[in-house]
Write a protein that binds this DNA or RNA. Sequence first.
DNA 1: CCCACACGTTTAGAATTATTGACGATGCTG
DNA 2: CAGCATCGTCAATAATTCTAAACGTGTGGG
Lengths: 192, 192
Amino acid sequence: MSAALQSEGSSEDIGTRLKLVRQIFGLTQRELARRAGVTNGAISLIEQNRVSPSISSLKKILDGIPLSLADFFTLDFSPSENVFFTAGELTEISYDPAITMRMVGRRVKDRALQMLKETYQPGADTGDAMLRHGGEECGVVIAGTLTLTVGVQERLLNPGDAYYFRSDIPHRFRNMSSEAVVLISANSPPSF
Amino acid sequence: MSAALQSEGSSEDIGTRLKLVRQIFGLTQRELARRAGVTNGAISLIEQNRVSPSISSLKKILDGIPLSLADFFTLDFSPSENVFFTAGELTEISYDPAITMRMVGRRVKDRALQMLKETYQPGADTGDAMLRHGGEECGVVIAGTLTLTVGVQERLLNPGDAYYFRSDIPHRFRNMSSEAVVLISANSPPSF
DNA sequence: CCCACACGTTTAGAATTATTGACGATGCTG
DNA sequence: CAGCATCGTCAATAATTCTAAACGTGTGGG
């Protein structure tokens, strides 16, 4: 076969699924390709369902997001979904062993907001090259002391303290204390 | 790259994962290949991690088991796993829209027993070409009236009734009533 | 207006995966 | 033990995917 491979149900529509995930994380095809170590053309073809990627390619691409294969296939894009989630149901997005991020809810389509529960181990540091998408973001510290740098300002935030800034301003999260920092954050709609 | 692709951690070791799943379901490479519409050579190469299958190939293969991509990547093979499972945590194995099977537990390695919760809608029928593996199986009916044929014997089983037979005897499950049949079944270790 | 830049798309060719058909090993049966 | 069947594996070839380098579009500045 060569012409068939096109639109299937939805759960198996890898292309659309990848495109949605990519857009939710505010990445362009080229940016994701760079992070993943593949070419932008490959991502374009996959998103159009003109090819069916190998597992190794798909894994490389998802590592650039980052998202596990299991989560990729498990994510639910249906508009009406569960309202309540237990702690264990949060989708994990691991950047760095010292930093864990868990997304609230598995529903992903038509999101207006992305909410994360983030945990920073002592010494964890995002670096400041994390411009990301162009929305806004805010958060509240739940535990520990967070060192937050936004533009030229730097502050120590203790439990109950919060922040709010435009995501295109360079920013950096650090845990310079000896106990873990936990915070709840939200990002406004990444692009689309 | 050409030589690297070999053994990785485990969660991403598609070959071993596929092999385990195939063996748990008591299928040979050739039998699975036939069901899936691929060649046995392809399955051999994948299980040895000598190639990384395309999603379309992997999906075809899993359809022959049958198992969804999401479940395939979600299955947990670690020997020590949870003991308790809620209804929603059972892994679904859908053969037929009229028949649902949910496997108890996600742990899969070193299983001595496979337990399923099966639901047959009115009219559902497995046909009798389901010889499957060579162990034994038994079950208890929870709701509805099950028509069970084993070899030359046929019986109507009502809630509380049960069965036990060698799986290599031809057998057939039917729901000839107007209400759904629910039963809990167990199979002894499929081959390996 | 035109240039520079970033976006997704496309195409030819390189790289990888799937098929075909054969092989050795094992087990069963007469 | 030979004959036969089935298992997993392998090599050569066919088919598909991935890369590299273009293209066309749209947008913002100067």
